[in-house]
Design a protein around this nucleic acid. Structure first.
Length: 511
RNA sequence: GGGGCGGUAGCCAAGUGGCUAAGGCAACGGAUUGCAAAUCCGUCACGCGAGGGUUCGACUCCCUCUCGCCCCUCCA
């Protein structure tokens, strides 16, 4: 089956073929570790994970690499002129407050003034969240998730190469800049060619720094700055690298080729970040192409609005899992969310459309996850867990595959799997085999990783079971007022109550 | 001003020139139940942002308009 992906570089949907036969090489822009990653970040990471799993589903070997941006960049004009406060310093300030207020556990970060400790803290949190949500590459840390701060040598090497090739220069301010005019293809990815760029339209460029550059769009590769919170020796003075150079270097270094297959990120990264990556990599390698396919996920809205801390609709992964999502009355639900539910919620709509994250959507996703879990349980009961291997010609699997092959049509794939999961397949062993294969991509039934936030579950279960026994007693006595009250108590704790002649069972709601 | 992406029922979301416009949730009717939940059966867009055009025929192609989102040196 032919795989087709939409390519930002050409603005068309193209048939995918790997550049090199041995495996597919893909690189995903990962998180900055100055704070917890939020669900919008994770939409993008999960999007990359679905690409990777889809490729594997179709039999490709995939080498997936992601970066961790742990260099402190400036809050203003990070790549252009390095003005403003450093993000690591801002994080340190916040961290001290959080330590005081107890938000950061005692001992988690010994010294907030050490940027490496802050980076470590948020890196660990990111990896934990990513594993919880089934992001495959997170289980390949550290070999396939690279820290910018551990790859400074590669950056210095590439910068030297760029200077030697005439693509970079040292400005009067001592800063090494990339010369966009030396790279005719600049603007091809984003459409922001030099003649069309409206300099300063974003309102974030200061004039004094622009004066040092040959062209207003030239961007920083290295800045000597002895006062910077993180700095390294270089031929251009002790300082720190520009924002874009880390991805160019780490992709090339870890994937081992000058031309890779797929590069992913959020839509905001198209310009300038990815445009600059292309200029750097191609400038250094002399190749015409850096990544064959550039794929971008659109933004996530929360309840129809941009996510922002001031609007109170800003959620991290742990906020959602621990029941801090607000319901339609604006109150946190207090009901913990199963990781598979959040994973499904963040992958279920097409990546090229905006996604609206809502409490209602989360409940919907919980229903779908539950149906798939129940379906699996039925198939396992019928087969003793013995699945029969099936190939892509198996009817349901074929339709599922066709949807995925068509530019990752997850919603279409769910349209195939959900009605099937309500049916009773004539051959449960083959059906279980098919479900297993589909779950290689979806990873929701089950989600392989152990769920986070399940601590204390045993105590609660025992209490709930006790309430169920009391409820059964009350029903036997025909004391229905007491029975209804007990049922209400169990439901309040986030359980569904199932009554049957065999006795009452409470099932934890997934969201 | 420039470069892109999207607008399908109450909500989420497929389809993309031609059978009656997938699927899920919600809702409603029924079976079941002490009443519920769960489950099962059934109902649920004469319509695809608006208006034109092409066509025997368009949600699907073309044009205009409109709304939303991203970017034009913080950003997933």
């Amino acid at each position: 089956m032919e795989l087709r992906f939409y390519n930002t570089l050409t603005n068309t949907t193209e048939v995918f073929h790997p550049v090199h036969a041995d495996c597919v090489r893909m690189y995903s822009c990962g998180p900055t570790v100055y704070d917890f990653a939020h669900i919008g970040n994770f939409r993008s990471f999960l999007f990359a994970d679905v690409i990777r799993r889809t490729l594997e589903f179709f039999g490709h070997r995939v080498h997936h690499v992601m970066n961790i941006t742990d260099v402190g960049h400036m809050t203003d004009d990070a790549s252009a002129d390095g003005g403003g406060e450093d993000k690591m310093q801002a994080a340190a300030r916040r961290m001290k407050e959080d330590k005081k207020s107890g938000k950061v556990p005692e001992g988690a970060v010994q010294n907030p003034d050490d940027p490496y400790q802050i980076a470590r803290y948020y890196t660990d949190a990111f990896l934990e969240d990513a594993r919880t949500l089934g992001v495959k590459v997170a289980s390949e840390y550290p070999e396939n998730i690279l820290h910018a701060t551990q790859n400074i040598d590669a950056m210095l090497e590439m910068i030297s190469q760029l200077i030697a090739n005439g693509h970079a220069y040292v400005g009067p301010d001592g800063v090494v800049y990339y010369s966009v005019e030396s790279f005719p293809a600049y603007g091809r990815l984003s459409g922001n060619t030099l003649d069309r760029l409206m300099t300063g339209a974003g309102g974030r460029i200061s004039d004094e720094n622009q004066a040092n550059k040959r062209h207003p769009a030239d961007f920083m590769l290295w800045k000597a700055d002895s006062s910077h919170i993180m700095k390294w020796d270089s031929p251009w003075g002790a300082g720190y690298p520009g924002w874009h150079i880390e991805c160019s270097c780490m992709a090339r270094k870890r994937l081992g080729k000058d031309v890779i297959d797929i590069h992913t990120g959020g839509e905001d990264l198209i310009f300038p970040h990815h445009e600059c990556e292309i200029a750097q990599t191609c400038g250094a390698t002399g190749q015409e192409t850096f990544a064959r396919f550039w794929m971008h996920a659109r933004f996530l809205l929360v309840e129809g609005e941009k996510m922002s801390k001031s609007k109170g609709n800003f959620y991290t992964v742990r906020d959602v899992l621990q029941g801090r999502v607000k319901d339609d009355k604006g109150q946190p639900t207090g009901v913990s969310v199963h990781p598979a539910v959040l994973r499904l919620e963040l992958i279920k709509s097409h990546y090229r459309g905006n996604m609206n994250f809502t409490h209602k959507g989360l409940i919907d996703s919980a229903g779908a996850v539950k149906r798939l879990h129940d379906f699996r349980a039925r198939l396992e009961a019928a087969t003793g867990g013995q699945a029969e291997a099936v190939d892509l010609n198996y009817p349901i699997l074929k339709d599922f595959a066709a949807a995925l092959a068509d530019d990752l049509n997850i919603a279409g794939a769910l349209g195939v799997i959900l009605p099937w999961a309500a049916s009773t397949p004539t051959d449960p062993a083959a059906a279980l085999g098919a479900l297993n294969r589909m779950n290689e991509v979806l990873a929701i039934a089950p989600l392989q990783s152990a769920g986070a936030g399940q601590a204390g579950a045993n105590d609660e279960q025992a209490e709930v079971q006790d309430l169920c026994r009391q409820l059964d007693d009350a029903r036997k006595r025909k004391d229905f007022a007491a029975a209804d009250s007990l049922r209400g108590q169990i439901q309040k704790r986030g359980y569904d109550v199932k009554t049957s002649p065999a006795g009452t069972i409470a099932e934890k709601r997934l969201a």
